[in-house]
Design a protein around this nucleic acid. Structure first.
Length: 431
RNA sequence: GGAGGGGUGGCAGAGUGGUCGAAUGCGGCGGUCUUGAAAACCGCUGUACCGCGAGGUACCGGGGGUUCGAAUCCCUCCCCCUCCGCCA
């Protein structure tokens, strides 16, 4: 949620920055009009309430003295006042509702270092390693999964429909080994605290991270048994960000507690409604995938240093696994709803001949914190909103693709990178 | 799923229609005293919004209602605890 005080003070700057996010600048005018209307109603209603409260106190005093008739006279007077207050409060609730609906639907504003423009303005800020070369004809992950029986696409689709995977044998073991490897890396080397969250969250958590209201159509809603009333109250998480970033919802933290650094494994459920290419076969775009997520809650002045550190933490994964990747700084038009600045990490998949997005690392600044009312008590300046950061560390299905395609060998086996070997208890998935 | 009991400030815990944003205790902060510390004593100690300000308003799990007036009465939802049933 944007800061209304900033918008009041700098409406023109806000318009320009909002336009860079692909929103009409006129939304700012609408917002300010609603804000003004809302505040006028608040002032008027509260003035009347003050009068009513004062008279009510007098009535109390009169009753105490046994002056019943005088009290009754005052009651009639106040009754009318009360009605006025009620109607003003109703108007106020309506104005508040309209104001909130609008401000919740506006995306975060981009940090000044973010290139303005659409997807084509994304900037490649780093390339690590080189595209591997093969002295044989490398296979794609579909062939490798079939020949090594890593994934049974047909049975996955039979069980849950297209876009759902059945990992089998070495495939299942590799997936589990990578999860364990990622968690251990971030816990032991990068200082994150592991949490294991619910995989279902309330709608308010989805709103807190900015998934809702915009991406309601992308979520899996959960119903309890046959009770249709329960539908729409809880959702399968699209990312562990949804539960973990909300850990400190409605809390005021102590300054010394910051920074908070969490990592969490979870499956991620995405309806991908309207998206092209959720196929029966393939792992690039699926309805359910595993991910290890990183979340930080930090003081505002450290937000961007922490973002760079988190990016390095995610990159470390690919470096240790010997994978070629590049880092993109996303443009203002290509960033997610809640982000003020985002880096995407794209890993090379030789069989695809393309880069795959495996991580998105963002600083949401105070956008999420304001939505979820996460604050911290500062030594100076009272209660403040922290910056909340999230990053994939990293998404598994696409990492799986890159790993097997990159480390495939002429005989059809997969060489396992050294850091992963203890987890998989082998240095090679045999052909 | 059945029966019962609860949700009040950082914590514990009073308060059953008015002078209650809320007693008291603990904790925390500041001070007095002390060579220093402890003890004792004194003071302060929630959040958000409106207002240039003085100040005002709201919040006692959430929402709604009754009333001139609600922490207190009514309805509803959520959550927690105990017992029974079922169950990984």
């Amino acid at each position: 949620m944007l800061d209304i005080k900033y918008i009041r003070q700098e409406p023109d700057a806000a318009k320009e920055r909002l336009a860079a996010r692909g929103e009409e600048g006129s939304r700012i005018d609408e917002l300010l009009a609603l804000d003004e209307q809302r505040r006028a109603l608040v002032t008027e209603a509260e003035t009347l309430q003050a009068t009513r409260n004062a008279v009510s106190k007098e009535i109390g005093a009169l009753m105490g003295q046994g002056k019943k008739e005088e009290a009754e006279a005052k009651k009639t007077e106040t009754r009318e006042l009360g009605n006025k207050v009620d109607s003003l409060n109703a108007q106020r609730a309506e104005a508040d509702g309209a104001f909130n609906d609008l401000i919740l639907s506006l995306p975060n504003l981009a940090h000044e270092s973010v290139p303005v423009g659409d997807e084509s303005a994304n900037a490649e800020v780093k390339v690590e390693g080189k595209k591997p070369t093969f002295d044989f004809n490398p296979k794609g992950h579909l062939d490798l999964c079939d020949s090594l029986k890593l994934i049974d696409f047909e049975r996955g689709a039979k069980l849950a429909g297209s876009g759902f995977l059945l990992y089998t044998g070495w495939g299942a073991r590799l997936e589990r080994a990578m999860i364990q490897f990622l968690l251990d890396l971030h816990i032991h080397e990068h200082g994150y605290t592991e949490v294991s969250p619910p995989f279902i969250v309330k709608a308010e958590c989805m709103e807190g991270v900015g998934q809702f209201p915009k991406f309601l159509d992308q979520a899996y809603a959960v119903q309890e048994g046959l009770d249709g009333e329960t539908l729409g109250k809880r959702y399968l998480i699209p990312t562990a960000e949804a539960p973990v970033a909300n850990l400190h919802r409605d809390e005021i933290l102590n300054e010394e507690e910051l920074p908070k650094k969490y990592c969490a494994y979870s499956p991620c459920f995405r309806a991908e409604a309207g998206a092209a290419g959720v196929a029966t076969r393939g792992m690039i775009r699926v309805h359910q995938f595993d991910k290890v997520e990183l979340i930080k809650v930090v003081k505002p002045e450290t937000g961007y240093d922490e973002l760079e550190a988190m990016l390095a933490n995610a990159e470390k994964v690919l470096q240790l696994l010997g994978l070629h990747y590049r880092v993109l700084l996303l443009s203002s038009g290509d960033m997610g709803f809640a982000a003020a600045k985002t880096y995407d990490i794209e890993v090379w998949a030789p069989g695809q001949g393309s880069y795959l997005e495996v991580s998105s690392v963002s600083n949401t600044e105070d956008f999420q914190a304001r939505r979820m009312k996460t604050r911290f008590k500062a030594e100076q300046g009272g209660n403040q909103l922290p910056h909340i950061l999230n990053g994939s560390g990293v998404a598994l299905a696409r990492l799986f693709v890159s790993l097997i395609e990159t480390h495939q060998q002429a005989d059809g086996s997969i060489a396992i990178p050294e850091p992963l070997q203890p987890y998989l208890r082998t240095d090679c998935i045999p052909a």
